[in-house]
Measured scan of single mutants.
Amino acid sequence: TGTRRLSDLRVIDLRAELRKRNVDSSGNKSVLMERLKKAIEDEGGNPDEIEITSE
């Protein structure tokens, strides 16, 4: 578990975070980053400090 910047995430991490939020996880990295950023902002979170749970 740790905090990472949105830009540091790999595509696989972006998809996992989107799936956790029940958000569409298809598309390229830039699309996924925008989608995740919006989802985090909608939750009231900070997209520059994403809580990542290692699996």
Rank of each mutant, 00 (worst) to 15 (best):
S54C: 08
G2K: 11
D13N: 05
K38H: 03
S54L: 14
L36S: 03
E49R: 15
E51Y: 12
E41C: 08
L36K: 01
S54F: 09
E41Q: 15
V31H: 10
L36F: 07
S54K: 10
R21Y: 04
E55P: 10
E17F: 02
D13V: 02
K38P: 02
A39H: 13
I40Q: 03
E49A: 15
L36V: 07
I52N: 10
R35L: 06
D8M: 10
G27W: 00
I12P: 14
G45M: 07
I52Q: 09
L36A: 05
D24H: 05
R21S: 01
S26G: 14
L9H: 00
T1F: 02
N22V: 04
R10P: 08
E17K: 00
R19P: 01
R19D: 12
V11T: 13
E49C: 12
L14K: 00
E43R: 06
T1V: 05
S30P: 04
N22H: 06
R21G: 00
D13Q: 14
R10T: 15
E51W: 07
R35G: 04
D42C: 09
S25H: 14
I12A: 15
K38R: 13
I50E: 04
E41T: 14
R15M: 06
P47K: 04
V11F: 08
D24M: 04
I40L: 13
N28Q: 08
S30K: 10
R10H: 04
G2D: 15
E51G: 14
N28S: 14
E34F: 02
R35I: 03
K29S: 09
I40M: 07
G27A: 03
N22C: 08
P47W: 07
R4K: 14
L14T: 00
V23G: 11
S30Q: 13
I50Q: 07
R19M: 10
G44H: 07
R19N: 05
S26R: 13
G45Y: 03
V23I: 09
T3S: 12
E17H: 01
I50M: 11
R15W: 03
N28F: 06
E41D: 07
M33S: 12
P47H: 13
E55H: 15
I12R: 15
S25Y: 09
E34V: 13
L6I: 12
E34L: 13
S7T: 10
V23M: 15
E55R: 04
R15L: 10
A16P: 00
G44S: 05
R35C: 02
N28R: 15
K37S: 12
N22A: 09
D48I: 05
R15I: 12
S26L: 11
S7E: 05
S26I: 12
I50H: 03
D24T: 03
E51N: 12
D13A: 05
T1M: 10
P47S: 11
V23S: 09
D42M: 12
I12H: 11
E55S: 01
M33H: 06
S54Q: 04
S54V: 13
G44T: 04
K37P: 01
I50W: 12
L9C: 07
E34K: 12
L36I: 02
I12V: 13
L32A: 04
L36G: 03
E34P: 13
E51V: 15
N28E: 11
K29G: 10
E34S: 14
L32S: 02
N28A: 12
E43K: 06
V23D: 01
L9F: 10
S25D: 15
N46L: 07
R19S: 14
G27M: 00
D24S: 10
R10G: 15
K38S: 07
S7W: 05
G27T: 00
G44V: 04
D48L: 09
E55Q: 08
N46E: 06
K29M: 04
D42I: 09
I52Y: 07
G44F: 01
D24A: 06
S30L: 13
D42L: 08
I12E: 15
A16R: 14
E49Y: 10
M33T: 15
V31K: 11
N28W: 01
E41P: 00
N46R: 13
D13K: 00
V11P: 08
S26T: 07
V31I: 13
S26F: 05
G44C: 04
G2L: 11
S7Q: 10
P47G: 14
R10M: 13
S7N: 02
L14I: 08
P47Q: 04
E49G: 11
S25L: 10
I12D: 12
L18G: 01
R35F: 01
E51C: 14
K20L: 02
G2V: 14
R19Y: 05
T3K: 09
R21I: 02
I52V: 12
M33K: 09
R35W: 00
A39L: 13
I12Y: 10
N46W: 05
E49F: 12
S54G: 14
R19E: 14
D24Y: 03
A39N: 03
I40W: 04
L9S: 04
L9Y: 07
D13P: 00
R19T: 15
R35T: 08
K37C: 08
E43P: 01
G2Y: 14
K29T: 11
E41Y: 08
R5S: 13
D42W: 04
R35A: 10
S26H: 09
T53S: 15
R21H: 04
R10N: 11
L9P: 02
K37N: 10
S25T: 07
R4C: 14
V31D: 06
L36Y: 06
D8G: 08
L14C: 01
I12F: 10
E34H: 14
V23H: 13
A16L: 14
E49I: 10
R19L: 14
M33R: 11
L32Y: 00
R10S: 13
N22S: 10
A39M: 05
L18F: 00
M33D: 02
V31Q: 09
P47V: 14
R5P: 03
G27Q: 01
G2H: 01
K29R: 15
A16E: 15
L32E: 01
V31P: 01
G45Q: 11
D48M: 04
E55F: 01
S7D: 09
D24L: 05
E49D: 07
L9T: 04
V31R: 14
A16K: 11
L14H: 01
M33A: 10
E43D: 10
L36T: 05
A16Y: 12
E17N: 01
E55W: 05
N46D: 09
I52R: 12
L18A: 10
T53Q: 12
R35N: 07
A16H: 04
N22L: 06
N46I: 04
E49L: 13
P47A: 11
N46S: 11
L32V: 05
M33C: 08
I40R: 08
K37T: 10
N22R: 11
E51D: 06
D42V: 11
N22K: 06
N22D: 12
I40Y: 03
G45C: 09
S7H: 03
G27H: 00
R15D: 02
V31E: 13
E51T: 11
I40P: 02
N46Y: 04
P47L: 13
L32K: 02
I52P: 05
I12K: 14
M33Q: 10
D8N: 07
R21V: 01
S54D: 12
S26K: 07
E55T: 02
G45F: 05
K38Q: 14
G27S: 01
V11S: 11
I12L: 13
L9G: 02
N22P: 00
D42S: 12
S30W: 08
R5L: 10
S25F: 09
I50C: 08
L14Y: 01
N22I: 01
R21F: 03
E43W: 01
G27F: 00
D8E: 11
L9V: 01
N28H: 13
D48R: 08
L18R: 00
V31T: 11
D13M: 03
I40C: 13
K29C: 06
